[in-house]
């Protein structure tokens, strides 16, 4: 029997933790789309889940080679149902827990690189929201004749708030990068 859960995460590590908690209870994620997760019943703790932001879209040449490599390492990719899957860079992997602990990044450098990709993503989303947001507000401010409706003002303000939210999301990621960088000073 499958169970569908609607939930939205910003922090991929919290999402990962939640998926692993569900797996521990015997509910294994089998497919997902935006904010929607489908679980199938499985053995308790049968799978370990990991989430990664790829450098390239799933169908990009770099990713195809990488995903092939993961497959050879016994790693399965959970299907992304619907949505702009072709351009999506977020992937959910899983591997049987019987194969031992499953991590994607095991050293400081590669962890930093991964967090940087996420940081860059949130920053560019924020920037885009700001640009479109301020353009909308600007249109209203410059409009003497009154063709531009208040919808633009509301839209603009909402986008600016959204941009600020993404800027906020990037802060903890930045802190994790800083922390890892200081670890590196001691460890290497």
């Amino acid at each position: 029997m499958s169970h569908t859960v609607r939930k939205l995460f910003i922090d991929f590590e919290k999402e990962e933790q939640w998926l692993n908690d569900m797996a521990a209870k015997g509910l294994a994620l089998t497919e997902y789309s935006w904010a929607r997760y489908v679980f199938e019943e499985s053995g308790k703790g049968e799978y370990i889940y990991r989430i990664e932001l790829l450098e390239d879209g799933i169908k990009g040449a770099k990713s195809v080679e990488y995903l092939q490599f993961m497959e050879e390492a016994g790693v399965e990719r959970v299907i992304m149902n619907k949505g702009p899957a072709a351009h999506n860079k977020w992937v959910i992997f899983r591997r049987k827990a019987s194969e031992g602990p499953f991590t994607i990044y095991s050293d400081t450098d590669s962890k930093i690189k991964h967090y940087r990709r996420i940081h860059r993503l949130w920053m560019s989303v924020a920037l885009m929201e700001f640009i479109i947001g301020f353009m909308n507000v600007g249109l209203v401010a410059l409009d003497y004749i009154g063709i531009v409706s208040n919808i633009n003002l509301v839209m603009g303000l909402l986008l600016i708030i959204l941009g600020a939210a993404f800027l906020l999301f990037s802060v903890p990621v930045h802190q994790k990068i800083k922390k890892l960088q200081s670890d590196k000073l001691i460890r290497e």
Binding site: F69, A73, G74, G100, T103, I104, Y105, D107
Partner: peptide, 28 residues
């Protein structure tokens, strides 16, 4: 060796201490 073989071998050499992540290995 291929990727998966390297992961297994590194584990063996290090008495399970060094468990290379697949992504880290790929990048390396």
């Amino acid at each position: 060796m291929h990727g998966y073989g390297i992961m297994q071998n590194v584990k063996l050499l290090s008495n399970q201490r060094v468990d290379l992540g697949a992504g880290t290995l790929y990048g390396a």
